[in-house]
Each structure stands twice: as structure tokens, then as C-alpha cells.
Design a protein around this nucleic acid. Structure first.
Lengths: 118, 118
DNA sequence: GGGTAGTACTACGTCCCGTAGAGAGGTGAG
DNA sequence: CTCACCTCTCTACGGGACGTAGTACTACCC
């Protein structure tokens, strides 16, 4: 999986936060603070769908974009990808477990317990 | 933390696998298959230490390079970084827990249990 | 039918990275 | 002593990704 650039991520964040598919114009309005040309937004949306992060469907003449996967799935995939980089997955996992804070260790523990029960 | 390129990672892999600090020449000999100019190896080693991935110490005229952190620590940090990207860490963690395979879930569970006991 | 919105295509600057040459300065062999 | 050689530092170039945007074409509304 390829990574995301700065602007690409901002745009993904907007789309991840929204439930409905948005048009380029709508996305552009939600980035107001950066004052980008409309074509800039369109270019990035186009690249993102080319990379598989977005899917798009027609709405009249316009395209509506929406994430191909949830942010959580993306983050989890990034984490797994990092994990694949090591020769010793166990050591890395152990290290990771030690690094997450208490509350999060709790979450992890719970998720794992639920897994076990199924 | 910045990411690593292809060659950069190969070189880190060599140094992570080795226990002793290596000189540029030694590293170069261990990448034999790619037939790189010695200066190429030196440049990459230099960039890696500039980025904080390696530390170096003098050995006569030459430098000896060694990883600043273990590969596991690096991988764990990458994973945490991915995790930081999401607004909903709990959801991502849960998703991650579901994605790791059985054996690895076991490892994680064990690491977390040990944490709890301390 | 002219303004507006939307698209596709093209482009340019920048930064990172793979790759490496040039030049400087020490070192060992003869 | 001198030359070949090693290693370092500095500089550079080409490709790819990304931020940014212009241009040209088409379709719709009033």
C-alpha cells in the first residue's frame, strides 16, 4: 500500500468523517482554510481514487467520492504492514504491547478476549 | 519519524542483523548482489545517521555505523505512529486485534498479561 | 447564448531517494 | 620519498511522488 501525502490525508480525513459521498466542490468548501483552487482538489481526489483509497460514482456531471475502506481498516493495515517489516514479529508485537498506554492495553486485551470467545 | 527508502531499508536490515558496528566497506560487501559504488553506500549510511537511524563512531579514518534503535523498536514506533493517525484509537486497536492471526494474538495476549502483573 | 460548474489533461516546482563522481587527505609498499 | 589506494566529504543528477494549478472542452441554467 502506498502512503498518503499531507493534502491527501486532509482530504481523506474529511471523507472519512463524512458519511455521505461528496463531490469535489463540497470537499473543497470543507478545506476552506487552505484556499485551494478547485482543480487542485479535483486532482487530488482523482489521484486518491487511482490509488484505490476512494471510489467514485456519477452524480449528474459530477463525481461523488467516498472512502474505499474505513479509517480504522486503513490504520490497522498500516500497523500490519509495519509488523511485516520485521523478521521477528513476536518481539515487535511484545514491544508494541509494552508501548501502548494503560487504557489502550485494556482495549486490546478486551478485543483479544472477545476474539477468544468466538 | 521519516520513512525509509528501499536501499536504506536493505542497509538497515544488514546492520540490524549484525551485532557489531560495521564500516561502509563492510556493509558494501554484504550487499554484493546490487553492485553499488562504494560512495553510494557511504552516502546512504550518512543520510541514515543524519536521520537518526544510525550512530557512528570513529575507527581510524573510517566510521563504524550501528543502529540507534532495534528493529523491533522501530517497528513498534511505526505501529504507534499509524495508530496516532486515527481519531478513534480504540476502534483501530480493536480492528488490529481482530486482524492479527491466532498465534500472534496469543503473543499479544501474553505480553499484555505480563504487563498487568507488573 | 453566456455565465457557471464540472471534467480531463498537462505542467511545474519541490523534496526524497538511488546512484555516483570529484576532490582532499591520510597510509602503507616499494 | 613517492605512488597507489582507502576513506571521507561535498556536490550532483535523474526519477517519482505530491502540492498546486492552468487550460480546454462540455453540459446545464436562466
Amino acid at each position: 500500500m502506498k502512503g498518503l501525502g499531507e493534502l491527501e490525508r486532509s482530504i481523506m480525513d474529511i471523507l472519512w468523517a463524512e458519511n455521505a459521498p461528496l463531490t469535489a466542490r463540497e470537499v473543497g468548501r470543507m478545506i476552506e482554510d487552505r484556499d485551494l483552487a478547485p482543480t487542485t482538489v479535483m486532482t487530488v481526489l482523482d489521484r486518491l481514487s487511482r490509488k484505490g483509497f476512494l471510489t467514485r460514482t456519477r452524480d449528474g456531471r459530477a463525481w461523488r467520492y467516498q472512502p474505499a475502506a474505513s479509517r480504522d481498516a486503513y490504520v490497522a493495515e498500516l500497523m500490519l504492514e509495519a509488523l511485516d517489516m520485521t523478521g521477528d514479529r513476536d518481539a515487535a508485537l511484545t514491544r508494541f504491547a509494552q508501548a501502548v498506554s494503560g487504557t489502550e492495553a485494556e482495549i486490546l486485551r478486551k478485543a483479544l478476549t472477545e476474539l477468544e470467545e468466538e
